[in-house]
Design a protein around this nucleic acid. Structure first.
Lengths: 186, 186
DNA sequence: GGGCAATGTTGACATTGTTCACATTCTGGT
DNA sequence: ACCAGAATGTGAACAATGTCAACATTGCCC
């Protein structure tokens, strides 16, 4: 091996190591900076090794997005359980906080180049997240969907605009308070 | 020249031709499919020629996004002028319709890889769009910003979710009506 | 223990963004 | 009208990247 002289030929469980390193690289450098060769080097493996575990770079990104959706859903459900009185506001805040804490992962999850139509796993993970949201909205079955979609759109738009720096935080302004205020006004 | 035997050495105004062809390619193939070489070939020029007009591929994309914001702002202002009674609803619908009609351009405008912090022109174009929105929201100067941001977030989130196919249109469902319904419930 | 599948390596290929040296055309000052 | 120099376009090259095929090594099961 190139990095460590006495490293074993087989890595152990490369797939997991690749995903973890990829997550780290993703948050550090953004999706564009996540190269397969860099990734392989970070794990101490040859450039072609990842292809034993992922069909392509796109497949690797998809796997990342799926775990992102899973974490996201888990957090949503936890918040929903711990704030039984006003789940909507709590989830809204959690949604935005998640996006701000994992900006590049969040962007990847909703990246257009992932084409969820062609990736059933990704579509399922995303749908699971949406189901959690709809569950929290409650309401009658008839207009439940519309209200859930509306709530999702509100909070998603806020998250995206914040991520893009489109909503500028003024000097000396409390970003958390601003977020809370906007959520409240939704 | 390679394409036409009697084409002149100088193109005439290459910059404009590049932008137009790029817009066409962008909507047809998405941002990833917009290669500098393809673009040059589409205009009938050598692969290095675009560099006389754009510093890099990123600069070309930025120029595209700027014109996108300009068109967007113009359409917003036109709608605002032609619907003086309820400008908010009209603009909301226009916002979403614009996104659905120019999906890849819209995605490019809000693409994270454009890093608006480092591109003053892009930031200005985006701010102009937001100013138009704020103007339509009106309200007192104090909470005008918050309300404008909230309105923007709502309609932007709806547009993004629709673009991503995250909001599934069911069989036999009128998408326009669905959009109108969601906007109404905001 | 031997064979087979899984996993990792090496080297190569096509493509892409980008640059450099050179060619061609346009333009303004005398 | 001319010519110098700025604009603009060409062609060949470079480095980097995703990807693949052939080969090496290891682990596992009968």
């Amino acid at each position: 091996m190139s990095t460590l002289p006495n490293a074993p030929y087989h890595h152990g469980n490369l797939r997991q190591a690749l995903l973890e390193a990829a997550l780290r690289l993703l948050e550090q450098q953004g999706e564009a900076g996540l190269g397969l060769r860099d990734l392989a080097r970070a794990v101490g493996v040859s450039p072609a090794a990842p292809y034993r575990h992922f069909d392509s770079r796109a497949a690797l990104l998809e796997a990342l997005a799926v775990t992102g959706f899973q974490r996201f859903t888990a957090r949503m459900q936890a918040v929903m359980a711990s704030a039984p009185d006003d789940p909507l506001a709590a989830m809204g805040k959690t949604y935005v906080v998640f996006a701000l804490q994992n900006p590049n992962l969040f962007r990847l999850m909703f990246s257009p180049q992932l084409k969820k139509d062609a990736r059933p796993g990704l579509r399922m993970a995303a749908d699971a997240a949406f189901d959690t949201l709809r569950q929290a909205v409650g309401g009658t079955a008839l207009d439940g969907r519309i209200r859930a979609l509306a709530a999702w759109a509100k909070v998603h738009g806020l998250a995206v605009l914040l991520l893009d720096g489109q909503i500028a935080i003024r000097a000396g302004e409390d970003s958390e308070a601003l977020v809370a205020e906007i959520i409240g006004s939704l």
